[in-house]
């Protein structure tokens, strides 16, 4: 069973970097149990990254305006479509999964999305805002926990 940890974001654009930074933070910890990929690609260009993995956890920023910055929400792929949010990256996931299937591309059967509410994902060169920087630890922990859970379930796992 192949596991993917995907950190999405633009590392130059303030809070938008959070997904990428979380991926970097966990890379060594999950080595052997998961492949860690950072990407600033968007939409269908991500299809190539997902193809071939059985399980994936995606870390990404969102701006719903409904939660305080730094709030982490965990979603299954099926939930993503229902989150009509100005997400910066993950809104294309259900479409991707739907496309991968008929094309026989092997999209992960299980995908979890860890979305963190951000404050300013637009200013070039800005560091993470305080609340988002404060969420990095929690995000990294949840990624590691998920990878561990899957690893312990084994090939027959749910």
């Amino acid at each position: 069973m192949r596991t993917l940890v995907l950190g999405l974001g633009n590392e130059l654009a303030g809070d938008d970097a959070v997904g990428v930074l979380v991926a970097r933070a966990v890379r060594e910890d999950v080595a052997g149990a998961a492949d860690v990929v950072e990407s600033s690609a968007s939409g269908m260009a991500l299809l190539e990254i997902f193809a071939g993995y059985d399980r994936a956890v995606v870390v990404d920023s969102v701006r719903t305006g409904r939660n305080p910055p730094g709030t982490v929400t965990e979603l299954a792929l099926a939930d993503v479509g229902r989150v009509v949010a100005p997400s910066l990256h993950h809104a294309g996931l259900p479409e991707m999964a739907a496309v991968a299937e008929p094309l026989g591309l092997g999209f992960p059967a299980k995908t979890r999305v860890l979305a963190v509410e951000v404050l300013d994902p637009y200013t070039m060169g800005a560091a993470l805002s305080e609340p988002v920087a404060g969420a990095v630890g929690e995000l990294a922990r949840r990624v590691r926990d998920q990878v561990e859970r899957w690893a312990s379930e084994g090939p027959a796992g749910e």
């Binding site: 938008d16 968007s42 939409g43 100005p86 910066l88 637009y122």
Partner: peptide, 13 residues
């Protein structure tokens, strides 16, 4: 718009 904000196509307001 990605040059400025870098975001993904999807459901955007």
């Amino acid at each position: 718009y990605g040059c400025a904000t870098h975001s993904l196509p999807g459901q955007m307001p």
